[in-house]
Amino acid sequence: MREISVDVETWPIAGAFTISRGSKTEAEVVTVTIRENGFTGRGECVPYGRYGETVKDVVASIKTIGRAISDGLTRDELHPVMTRGAGRNAVDCALWDLEAKSRGIPVWKLASLPEPQALTTAYTLSLGEPDAMREAARAAAARPLLKLKLGGSGDDIARVAAVREGAPNATLIVDANEGWKADDVLPMAAELAKFGVALIEQPLPAKEDEALRGLTCPIPLCADESAHGLEGITRLAGLYQYINVKLDKTGGLTEALSVVRCARRRNLKIMVGCMVATSLAMAPAMLIAQGAEFVDLDGPLLLAKDREHGIRFEGSLMLPAEGALWG
């Protein structure tokens, strides 16, 4: 019989991480460990208040299906009995890891994927005053891809201008975190295009993004808070050019693989993102990030420390995870 344990861990952030919805100095993650016949599989998730999740509720949801997991619940059986979200992600990834360890086959082979290669990740600059963001950009100017958190205020253009001054050669992504109004999108995009911005994430609140239908925007738009699982992709294809795939939103690697395939069929390009978390959460995301147009898996780079056997970074280049970590 399997044994399952659920733990809550706190990992300090290097400084603070600030977006339009608030600031935090530590990342609280939920980890799932499943043991069977001497083998151990692990998964990690970040409950996210924006989606109505709390650490307490996510832990409770995992414990609710603990007996079924102990009795041998499979990944395919997991999805109908557990709601999509962070908790299901941790369980799903732990089951993938357990199978890989017990069979002696890496997850990428189990999933019929190409062997993972090193990836260049974006590096996130927290929301701040323009001068502070300029200095942060200078400190990160050698990184090829920077992602800026914006605030939905009149200072956003000044923030982007300051970052461009600090990092003149970096490709820039801006993340509005649902902070703009419909009338802002085209004027803001026209201004941002002057600074060579390559992508705008989630400009409008998810419930208001129908206003983007038919819009001809000078910068591609990417759905984040609007993009979760398979059922919404057809609608998104008429509003955005990219979707940001995050395992905590899809509820695990299993559905994320299907989401990527479905999005490609609808001519949506792929960004793979993450919450602020350790390398244990990044390792499965790296598998779906192979071939993605943009990769944003910098969670461990934002932490003061990472877990043992963490992913090795050479600047913004992230190397494939070791089997001792996951997969």
Rank of each mutant, 00 (worst) to 15 (best):
Ala176Arg: 01
Asn177His: 08
Asn177Asp: 10
Glu178Ile: 00
Glu178Trp: 05
Gly179Asn: 07
Trp180His: 03
Trp180Glu: 02
Lys181Gly: 13
Lys181Asp: 14
Leu186Tyr: 08
Leu186His: 06
Pro187Val: 12
Pro187Glu: 11
Ala190Cys: 14
Glu191Ile: 12
Ile200His: 02
Glu201Pro: 11
Leu204Lys: 11
Pro205Trp: 12
Pro205Asn: 14
Ala206Phe: 12
Ala206Lys: 15
Lys207Asp: 13
Glu208Ser: 13
Ala211Cys: 10
Leu212Asn: 06
Thr216Val: 15
Cys217Ser: 14
Pro218Arg: 12
Pro220Ser: 11
Cys222Glu: 06
Asp224Glu: 09
Glu231Phe: 06
Glu231Ile: 10
Ile233His: 03
Arg235Ile: 07
Arg235Asp: 12
Leu236Ala: 03
Gly238Met: 05
Leu239Met: 13
Gln241Met: 08
Tyr242Phe: 15
Ile243Ala: 02
Leu247Glu: 05
Leu247Thr: 12
Lys249His: 11
Lys249Arg: 15
Thr250Gln: 04
Thr250Phe: 00
Gly251Asn: 10
Gly252Cys: 09
Gly252Glu: 11
Leu253Met: 09
Glu255Thr: 07
Ser258Tyr: 11
Ser258Gln: 15
Val259Cys: 09
Val260Asn: 01
Arg261Phe: 05
Arg261Tyr: 08
Arg266Met: 15
Leu268Val: 00
Leu268Ser: 01
Leu268Phe: 03
Lys269Phe: 03
Cys274His: 08
Leu280Lys: 06
Met282Phe: 08
Ala289Pro: 03
Gly291Tyr: 00
Glu293His: 14
Phe294Ala: 04
Asp296Cys: 04
Asp296Met: 03
Asp298Gln: 11
Asp298Val: 09
Asp298Asn: 12
Leu301Asn: 07
Leu303Tyr: 02
Ala304Glu: 14
Ala304Ile: 03
Lys305Val: 12
Lys305Tyr: 13
